[in-house]
Design a binder for these strands. Structure first.
Lengths: 202, 202
DNA sequence: CCGGTATGAATGAACGACCGTTCATATTTA
DNA sequence: TAAATATGAACGGTCGTTCATTCATACCGG
């Protein structure tokens, strides 16, 4: 019989159930705050069976991050759509709305990135941030340069806009603070866009 | 004889030494990743003595956050200085530089806030974020309204600017990613300021 | 000044529970 | 039947917390 692809994404349903359970628990209580027994029980699986699918607890965590990373950078995600929606800066509001959708959809991923920063000193995710500018530069190259002022770096500007929206929604969603800017989400998207387009100065 | 401070850092009391050790360890390995025995040893104190000063491990964590919060909001901190430096938006660069200083000075505090979000679901720090806008509104009221465009909310704008700088330096310092915008810190401060003042549009 | 003592800081052994991982074994699958 | 998958008891540690005990100091009436 064909040997199972060892490194590939889990195909056995129990392996996926273990990943899902680890996902929920690591997000709720962190890595060291979650025991393998809890993961097994939440997955409806015996304790020892975890070790048939994953080498150990930390490898389970790493596999979880990899699964999210693959999904995050898969084509068709809202951020990629927004970057191509129109050349920056015409797509600022689209970036804002896509950021909101993305933070909601990938709330667990973002939380796990924080888990990595806190409990593993960012060991698993530092590369992601180091390569951020290159990724944004590719998006800018693809969508073309829009009506950006000549003394503004369009890549840095697009990163700045995106990260601002991202961090706004992260506080709203992950820190559980509603309307921390004193306004609703759509209102905040427009307020940010107004400032990013024409600045705050009179 | 009373415990002589054999370590280099002068300590007022053993309670402070326990707090300092907990600070270092919680930041490095998270709350559940740190044991009370490690804290005791790092503090140069017996295990049981921790419980003479703190009710338990979580209360130790909470006390740590409270100590930082008191220091963070004490008068004379760089952020408060920058807010009064000149009416917004004339002080944008000052806010940027103060943010850099603050993230460096309070790196541990910010990390502990992430620890709280990850391991306690933000239980200890959510209030801080809920009250953010009120604090910024007070700063704006105190420094007066500068040359802000009439359709821009100066409080939201100042929050936006400050959080952008804060998050920039957080990635640089806490995530350990150097120059993730592809430029140095002072350059980034100026690039942000350029955009916040007059926008990205041509 | 005295001896007595109340008080809190300090200690580390001990406790029961839980930790991640392994393993002998059983069951399912192809 | 061979391999993959599943089980849960068992192992050696470590966990947070408690506790009996010691020690240093402050306060007392005399």
């Amino acid at each position: 019989m064909p040997a199972a692809p060892a490194k590939a994404a889990p195909r056995a349903t129990n392996a996926a159930a273990i990943l899902d359970a680890a996902n929920r628990l690591f997000c709720k209580k962190g890595f060291h705050g979650t025991s393998t027994r809890e993961v097994a029980e939440a997955a409806g699986v015996s304790l020892g069976n975890i070790y048939n699918h994953f080498k150990g607890k930390e490898e389970l965590f790493a596999a979880l991050l990899e699964r999210f990373e693959a999904e995050y950078f898969a084509p068709g995600q809202p951020m990629a759509q927004a970057f191509l929606d129109a050349p920056f800066p015409a797509n600022i509001e689209a970036i804002g709305r896509a950021s909101g959708q993305t933070v909601n959809k990938f709330a667990d991923y973002i939380l796990l990135i924080y888990v990595d920063v806190v409990e593993f000193q960012g060991r698993h995710i530092a590369k992601l941030f180091r390569e951020m500018r290159v990724r944004y530069a590719k998006h800018v190259a693809k969508a073309g340069r829009g009506a950006v002022a000549p003394d503004v770096d369009p890549v840095a500007a697009m990163m700045m806009v995106t990260l601002s929206y991202f961090n706004y929604f992260t506080v709203e969603k992950l820190f559980g603070v509603k309307n921390h800017f004193g306004m609703g989400d759509e209102e905040a998207i427009k307020a940010f866009a107004r400032i990013f387009r024409r600045g705050v100065e009179r």
